[in-house]
């Protein structure tokens, strides 16, 4: 009587093993399908733009083409670069974004360190105000900021000295640089928060040791704390750079006629329609229009050109980036 029972049990165990194996195999398969699906959804628009960028205009009306063009051409890239005035524009935008990013990282790390490591009266209230700057929509401050920078005059000094109404700073990089340097630029509150969280988690003994060895507070910050704050620095610099590069709100508020990538890209469809006939050398005055499908080819190529610096940058730093976000203590 006992033998079959045992056998049965063995069979049951084998069955269970097989079942759990299939289940985990199915789960693995399911996971891969999901990951590949989502990755495809993310990459698809970029792939499509890549396909469009090198597609010759004769291929527009060929319905048998899917993604890979038959006739390759660099024509679209050339025209898009001409419409955007690409290289000077890129240089301008990079200088602009890099300088605001550096200023912002500097001012926000200072403030974050101050909030994390020092005790002074009103600290908690002030930090609540930092959080408030994150929460208030920027459109609330838009009009006063515009007027403020339209006739920029700190403490009325210029009015006293020259009797004029102040300097018009619109369409210069002034407003963005000033807001960045004073830690009130694009999403600065968030960056202060990130730095504060990180500095709070660093052991206090480091500072004590530095103090005993005779380093003042400022020197401690620059020689000990800041070099150790690489993870939040990378996070903040990357985010600040990307957001500044992409920003349209402040850019159109302060720099509506400057050469900035975000401004040019958002007016690209209109610009392409307007300037393409001239660039292509089509004679015949204002009524000559380029084939709208070719225009959209060029517009798409222009967008690809605009995002490609970010993609190239991301390729280099992405590994570093994900790790640094995990370590920078965004979680608290």
């Amino acid at each position: 009587m006992k033998l079959p029972d045992l056998q049965n049990e063995a069979v049951v165990i084998q069955m269970q093993k097989a079942r759990s194996k299939t289940a985990s195999l199915l789960w693995l398969l399911f996971r891969y399908i999901l990951i590949i699906g989502i990755s495809f959804t993310i990459l698809y628009p970029i792939l499509q733009q890549l396909s469009v960028a090198f597609k010759d205009k004769t291929d527009i009306y060929n319905p048998t083409i899917y993604m890979i063009p038959v006739h390759f051409t660099m024509e679209n890239v050339r025209y898009a670069m001409a419409v955007l005035n690409y290289w000077p524009l890129l240089k301008n935008t990079l200088i602009f974004a890099a300088s605001t990013t550096l200023l912002q990282a500097a001012s926000c790390s200072l403030a974050g360190y101050g909030f994390a490591r020092f005790h002074f009266p009103g600290k908690n209230i002030l930090f609540t105000l930092v959080v408030l700057t994150i929460l208030i929509p920027s459109s609330t401050l838009m009009v006063p900021m515009y007027i403020h920078f339209r006739s920029f005059d700190l403490f009325g000094v210029i009015h006293l000295a020259t009797g004029k109404e102040g300097i018009n700073m619109l369409n210069t990089y002034g407003p963005s640089l000033i807001t960045a340097a004073l830690a009130n630029g694009l999403k600065s509150g968030l960056f202060i928060y990130i730095f504060r969280q990180f500095f709070r988690s660093m052991p206090g003994e480091i500072e004590e040791a530095a103090l005993i060895d005779g380093a003042g507070g400022i020197r401690t910050f620059f020689t000990i704390m800041l070099p150790n704050a690489v993870p939040p620095l990378i996070t903040v610099i990357l985010f600040a750079f990307v957001w500044q590069y992409n920003d349209i709100f402040y850019a159109s508020l302060f720099n509506s006629s400057s050469d900035l990538m975000s401004i040019k890209v958002s007016s690209l469809p209109a610009d392409a329609n307007q300037y393409l006939p001239g660039i292509m050398g089509l004679a015949g005055g204002e009524n000559v229009k380029v084939d709208p499908n070719q225009v959209s080819l060029i517009v798409d190529t222009g967008i690809l050109l605009a995002i490609s610096p970010l993609i190239v940058m991301y390729l280099f730093v992405q590994r570093f980036f994900v790790e640094s976000v995990e370590r920078s203590g965004v979680v608290g």
Binding site: A111, G114, F120, P121, K123, L126, L182, S188
Partner: peptide, 11 residues
């Protein structure tokens, strides 16, 4: 605490 205020001064 003065130093702390100095650090958050720009902000």
């Amino acid at each position: 605490s003065l130093l702390g205020i100095l650090f958050i001064m720009p902000w």
